[in-house]
Write a protein that binds this DNA or RNA. Structure first.
Lengths: 267, 267
DNA sequence: CGGAATGTTGAACCGTTTCAAACGGAGTGG
DNA sequence: CCACTCCGTTTGAAACGGTTCAACATTCCG
């Protein structure tokens, strides 16, 4: 993990406020991003932790198969993905992480990674040393439960992706991914974003939905021609949410966005 | 959930020993099945819990999308699966559960289900009321962590399935599923089973790997012709593990079977 | 035994891949 | 400022893998 590195050690029990991130990509401030992570867990406690910020370029590996990372991280801005590759060097992206999400989490329990994590675009990442959250979680059962909730949602998303890739055609697959992103990039309880930046290459999109970049290209063109997804380089614009949902066969319930994470059960 | 129901309330602090299950399907005793669940968690405590046993026929729903089940269960014998369906009534099996595994677990955190659970064969199921494990987990952090480990492994398997369905051809997909089952049906630390019963229909297999039953049929025939998977109704026989692994592009690490669950971190 | 579910086979079809070539834009160095 | 390169996008043609449809055989189960 390269890039410039700066270390923060925010004062205890103080909410961090940073300057707004000017990147129109996510329109999210650092504060928001960190806050999202916290809202899954316990705000005051997590904010007390020391953490390190990194900026990584697109395509850098944050974790490799076989690694045993000893930290966990919050994606502050940009997009990152988990992927696996088959013997024939075919890549499959199995998760796309959006700003505010925690990753590396699973390694706390599973020890060695069975997949890679790679930045898909230029990313900012806040890293928290491994021990801190572990200690925390032991003390505060609520936090442990909340972190679990995050993995369970990731599992729910993986299940929907299985349906998407296993049983839907190219048109629906791509539309479905766009719908998911529109919702995940919106704030909790808000409607899906009508427009947003999704600076992924067509090859990356193909790797996420199990298609070749060539076919992604022609499908994207077809969706544009039908007025479902007007063409723009790396921006998404959804003229009519209902129509897109229709071709995507999209049902947002699997995202569990209605869940009140503050009051999740404490198992 | 239908079928005959009998209720057990084993004496406190006594290990249950039952008669061997004569079903050659899994060659597992009830004791073993329960023990498997316990080995993920904490044996003595979990065995103290009251539970109910059910026998369900193939094809019965144990949970439906939208349900908020208030219990969790151990699959004692048989196979069960989680599935989702697309708008065109296309089914995708996203998880196959083998004897000894816990399911319904995720509902403890997510409240409403985003998928269905259905018995794929005749199954025996031990059900534990919801409250008990929750209370337990609060008391014993070890148990909570162990249950989390189980979900994280399910997530790791889902990721591999995404690669399987998204990037491998029919031949490799089916071979891969067989390899996975051979390993998951073996005891921890043991080599993969060389032969076992897998009484799934070709349609169910197809739903698991994203193919039609017709194509599963011809692929199965082709695998048999090549001596990789000799044909027998619902039994699997693997003459040469290495060869099958080769066509499946199978790497068992994602199953995390080497993991010592007793000493998993307690997060 | 009879009916339903599952397995089997072949032929036509079609969605997606593969291969190949060209294009466009962004960044770099001369 | 142009030429050059790199990367991603675009397009077309041919090949392929898997689906669909349809008919029939077989097994399972009440």
């Amino acid at each position: 993990m390269g890039g410039e590195i700066e270390t923060f050690r925010p004062p205890v029990a103080t909410v961090i406020t940073m300057t707004a991130n000017s990147d129109p990509l996510v329109g999210m401030t650092d504060k928001l991003a960190i806050h999202t992570a916290i809202s899954i867990a316990d705000r005051k406690l997590l904010l007390r932790l020391p953490y390190t910020r990194h900026v990584v370029q697109a395509g850098e590996y944050l974790m490799r198969e076989g690694d045993s990372p000893d930290n966990f991280s919050v994606l502050v801005s940009g997009f990152a993905g988990r992927h696996k590759t088959s013997g024939e060097e075919q890549r499959q992206i199995v998760t796309i992480h959006t700003p505010g999400e925690i990753f590396d989490l699973q390694q706390l329990h599973l020890e060695t990674a069975d997949h890679n994590i790679q930045s898909l675009t230029r990313c900012e990442i806040a890293t928290i040393p491994r021990l801190a959250p572990r200690q925390l979680a032991d003390e505060r059962v609520t936090i442990a439960g909340a972190l679990v909730t995050a993995s369970l949602i990731e599992l729910a998303v993986a299940r929907e992706w299985l349906l998407n890739i296993g049983r839907r055609n190219a048109r629906a697959r791509i539309a479905h991914l766009i719908c998911e992103m529109a919702l995940r990039l919106s704030r909790k309880g808000r409607p899906p974003r009508q427009s947003f930046q999704l600076p992924l290459t067509q090859e990356q999109l193909g790797d996420a939905v199990g298609l070749t970049s060539v076919h992604v290209n022609s499908t994207l063109k077809a969706l544009a021609k039908d007025g479902l997804l007007p063409h723009s380089k790396h921006g998404v614009l959804i003229p009519h949410w209902g129509n897109l949902v229709g071709v995507a066969d999209f049902d947002s319930r699997y995202l569990h966005m209605n869940l009140n994470r503050e009051t999740a059960p404490s198992l």
